[in-house]
Amino acid sequence: MRAIWKGAIAFGLVNVPVKVYSATEDHDISLHQVHNADGGRIRYQRRCEVCGEVVDYSDIEKAFDEDGRTVVLSKDELKSIPAENSHEIEVVQFVPSEQLEPMMFEKSYYLEPDSKSPKAYVLLRRALEDTDRVAIVQFALREKTRLGALRIKDDVLVLQSLLWPDEVREANFPSLEADIRISAQERDMSAALVESMAADFEPESFTDEYQVQLRQLIDAKLEQGESLDTEETFGVEAGEGGKGEVIDLMEALKRSLDRKRGGGEGASAGGSSEGEADTGDGEAEPAKPARRASGNKASGNKASGTGAASKTAAKTGTDDAKPAAKSSAKSTAAKSTATKAAAAKSPASKSTGTKSADTKSSGTKTAAKPAAKTRTRKPA
């Protein structure tokens, strides 16, 4: 690296000589403009509007227009500004780092000790470490007085230039002034999505995909020339990407969570019908008691005698309990008194009637009451 500026940090009465280096660089592939007909290079010329001549850089000065007048400022006049001649990074205060607005950060510079004894440099670095604060500084660089923040990165002092407050625009968007309501479910799902994507920030795990693909395009063009097939190069049609269907917010949150959790839509689509559980062999078996209760209420089985007769059969171990209950119910209206009495004396009927009296099923009670009436009438 090459130092772009030399000066000193003024830390109270302590002077810390430093060299300044650009801490960042542009990794973009450099492209230039050409004429598409013959590939000729397009260059920008510094041409004077008055005489039409191309002007050499050494003959160019800077100027400012105001009220129709042009004020030309020579290089020597600009260098005469006192702040321009300052080579001092003046520490003006120490502040908590969380008070700095990230939007104000402009460019970063490494500071290297510029003396045989870097003790003052290390002392300032230790002071920032011990107090857990950032030094706010003022300095002049490249014809501009700047505000900056002095912090530590990997035992090196880093100077970050800051924008002045009036250089940060105010965000005033009428669309955000409307009364926007967010439901509790939307907030819960968005929080769950954030939690599913939570991780420690590792910058090295990210790649500038555009620059990688631009290099891929250049290499393919060098190899194939004008016969370049971009669809074959990238695997997609030219201009594709970024096209997605418009879905509502809740649906987008649900899909995002499913994708992150690895569940997909099949997790809820394969469930069995209400009140039944799939056994895997094409037949359904009764669901567990908790599900059966909700299923019976939903389907109106509470008023039906079928479920109660099945329960009675299960308790007595008699296979014909359910037919007996149905036969008993029909006999009250269609069969003779003798037939009713015979049905009442049968073991199945007694079992059904006895067990049903303890149950709360309305259908089974209906079957038991007529049998009791038949027994009281027979002696007469």
Rank of each mutant, 00 (worst) to 15 (best):
residue 244 G to T: 09
residue 227 S to V: 00
residue 125 R to V: 01
residue 233 T to L: 15
residue 240 E to N: 10
residue 223 E to C: 06
residue 193 L to A: 06
residue 181 R to C: 00
residue 212 V to C: 02
residue 152 I to Q: 03
residue 139 F to N: 09
residue 138 Q to M: 02
residue 142 R to M: 11
residue 234 F to T: 04
residue 222 L to N: 11
residue 117 S to K: 03
residue 177 E to L: 11
residue 152 I to C: 01
residue 120 A to V: 04
residue 238 A to G: 08
residue 218 I to K: 05
residue 137 V to M: 03
residue 226 E to D: 15
residue 136 I to C: 01
residue 119 K to D: 07
residue 151 R to T: 15
residue 137 V to N: 03
residue 178 A to S: 13
residue 126 R to H: 14
residue 230 T to R: 13
residue 204 E to V: 09
residue 231 E to Q: 14
residue 129 E to G: 11
residue 174 P to I: 04
residue 122 V to H: 15
residue 138 Q to D: 09
residue 180 I to Y: 13
residue 122 V to W: 15
residue 248 D to F: 11
residue 169 R to A: 12
residue 213 Q to Y: 12
residue 214 L to P: 03
residue 152 I to V: 05
residue 185 Q to V: 11
residue 183 S to D: 10
residue 195 E to L: 05
residue 135 A to R: 01
residue 223 E to L: 10
residue 122 V to A: 14
residue 173 F to G: 08
residue 132 D to T: 13
residue 204 E to D: 12
residue 123 L to T: 15
residue 159 L to T: 11
residue 230 T to S: 07
residue 119 K to E: 14
residue 186 E to L: 08
residue 137 V to C: 04
residue 178 A to F: 09
residue 247 I to M: 02
residue 182 I to G: 04
residue 218 I to W: 11
residue 247 I to R: 06
residue 196 S to L: 12
residue 167 E to Q: 09
residue 156 V to S: 03
residue 209 E to W: 12
residue 250 M to H: 02
residue 186 E to W: 07
residue 174 P to V: 03
residue 204 E to F: 14
residue 159 L to Y: 03
residue 132 D to R: 15
residue 211 Q to N: 01
residue 190 S to K: 05
residue 150 L to H: 14
residue 209 E to Q: 10
residue 123 L to S: 01
residue 147 L to Q: 03
residue 127 A to C: 06
residue 122 V to R: 15
residue 130 D to Y: 13
residue 157 L to S: 07
residue 175 S to V: 12
residue 136 I to W: 00
residue 230 T to A: 08
residue 236 V to K: 01
residue 221 K to S: 05
residue 203 P to Y: 14
residue 195 E to M: 05
residue 235 G to H: 13
residue 232 E to P: 12
residue 125 R to N: 05
